[in-house]
């Protein structure tokens, strides 16, 4: 059964590209355009991985991340933060809030794919 990945980003073109890449790797993909929608989706089905943007309307990535980590049913969910916020402090903040990986935009598609694969593998 293919792994499920939830992509959360407010930039349609980013969502499109990441969705394409994940599908090419054979994963099942769901998308959300903002943090609130993402959390609603998560309450219904739990994916195997979350790719999360930071700067989004209605709950940013940091807020989503900390809410997920506070929820015992979601605590095991790997989170990959994919953000244009590239400052050291922001990366640290993401990691300390519970992100498993932090990739800054613009990103290398290979790195992204490798990181997703790695995170999913360690999950098994």
């Amino acid at each position: 059964m293919p792994k499920k990945i939830l992509i959360v980003d407010d930039e349609p073109n980013i969502v499109l590209s990441v969705e394409y890449l994940m599908k090419r790797e054979g994963y099942q993909v769901a998308t959300a355009n903002d943090g609130q929608t993402a959390l609603e989706l998560l309450s219904e089905t739990t994916p195997d991985l979350l790719i999360l943007d930071v700067m989004m309307p209605r709950k940013n990535g940091f807020e989503v991340c900390s809410e997920i980590r506070a929820d015992p049913t979601l605590s095991g969910l790997p989170i990959l933060m994919l953000s244009a916020k590239g400052r050291e402090a922001e990366i640290k903040k993401g990691v300390s809030l519970g992100a498993d990986a932090y990739i800054t935009k613009p990103f290398s598609t290979h790195d992204l794919v490798n990181m997703v694969n790695k995170l999913l593998k360690s999950q098994e």
Binding site: N13, I14, A84
Partner: peptide, 12 residues
């Protein structure tokens, strides 16, 4: 970074 990310992703 945001438009650059799209450009790079699709280019790759």
């Amino acid at each position: 970074r945001t438009p650059l990310a799209s450009i790079r992703a699709f280019s790759e």
